[in-house]
Simulated assay, not measured.
Amino acid sequence: MDLEVRHLRALCAIADTGSLHRAARQLGVAQPSLSTQLKRIEQELGGALFLRERTGCRPTRLGRVVLGRARPLVAEMHALVTEARAAAMDDDGPQLRIGSTASRALAGWLRRLRARKREPLLQMDVSANSLLRMLADGRLDVAFVHEVEGSPLRVPDGLRLRVLVEREPQFVSLPADHPAAVHPVVRLSELAGDRWMVDPTVDGEWDAVHRMLRGAGISPRVLHGDYHTAASLVATGEVVTVCQPTCQPRPEMAVRRIHGDPLGVRLLLAARTEAELDSVYPELSQAYQEVARQAPGYREWLEEAGV
């Protein structure tokens, strides 16, 4: 096995994150695949590069030697790719690499950018921290991310942030025939007997939902799964789940405010320069306002809040 730049990049990711799980997410690969790759690299080099401890991975003496040579090579390759992409943009027209967590504002944002002749390339990820890391590494130009209340994002040095919404209240989606759905505002106590579905891969989401439910004095049954699956299960009456206030109700699914607004997120736009923020923020703000007005419950909330 001959070592390639991708192998060196994997070693750097493991060292930087201190965890095979976090490194796999950063690299966009499955953890078992990264573990297998690491074992092959160690076999090729003749020794262990990391100590696997309960708290994570720590470089061995051999690992530190290898990392000392690997980092400059990875940095050089990163610079080469960045310069090549810049040259390609000059030849083929400007392309904007956008990273984003899920949002109904995305479609309107992309449409507005295309109208300005900025062709967007979109990278979706449930992990805001992963998108910020990609932005810092030069793999994205801007990132639109959600910061869950109580779980601050790990913002790499050198990034610029602009707040789109300081605190967006999170609503709840529940079956349309649920007894609590007859009210425009739902108390968590009315949902104590329901199963809740939470996506644990969303940074900070499970901790925040757990705090919210515990604060209400309830301990419901919780299922883990992505929010696309959750929407289907809500529609069939299996679960309830938190959702963004811009979420549109459907005949089989109601979207309601939670009494007291116990859960919120901050919406952020990130880039490496203020100029890049300036170039895309107005379109994002317009797109968000558009979907906010289209969501009846959220529109009423905004009017009551005087926003």
Rank of each mutant, 00 (worst) to 15 (best):
I218G: 11
L161D: 14
L267V: 05
P179N: 07
L268G: 07
E166Q: 08
H210R: 14
M197E: 08
A270H: 07
G217V: 07
H259S: 05
G225E: 13
E168V: 14
V186E: 09
E283K: 04
Q294A: 15
L174M: 06
R195Q: 11
A275M: 04
A192V: 01
H224D: 12
R211Y: 11
M197L: 12
L269Q: 06
L191G: 09
E166S: 06
V280N: 09
V255Q: 10
P249V: 00
L191P: 06
E290L: 12
R221D: 11
V239S: 01
Y281M: 13
A180G: 12
V242E: 04
A287Y: 04
I218A: 10
H178E: 07
A287E: 13
D199Q: 02
A176L: 09
P200L: 05
S219V: 02
T236A: 06
L191N: 08
V186I: 15
L277T: 11
L268T: 11
V265H: 04
A235K: 03
A254N: 08
D203F: 00
V255P: 11
Y288T: 05
M212Y: 08
S173L: 10
L233D: 02
E168S: 15
I258S: 05
Y281K: 02
S279A: 15
G204Y: 02
L213M: 01
G260V: 04
W206L: 15
V198D: 06
G225C: 09
E252L: 13
V234I: 06
D261G: 13
V242Y: 12
S189H: 05
A270N: 10
L191Y: 00
L213Q: 00
E252N: 12
P184S: 01
R211A: 15
A235R: 10
V209E: 11
L268Q: 02
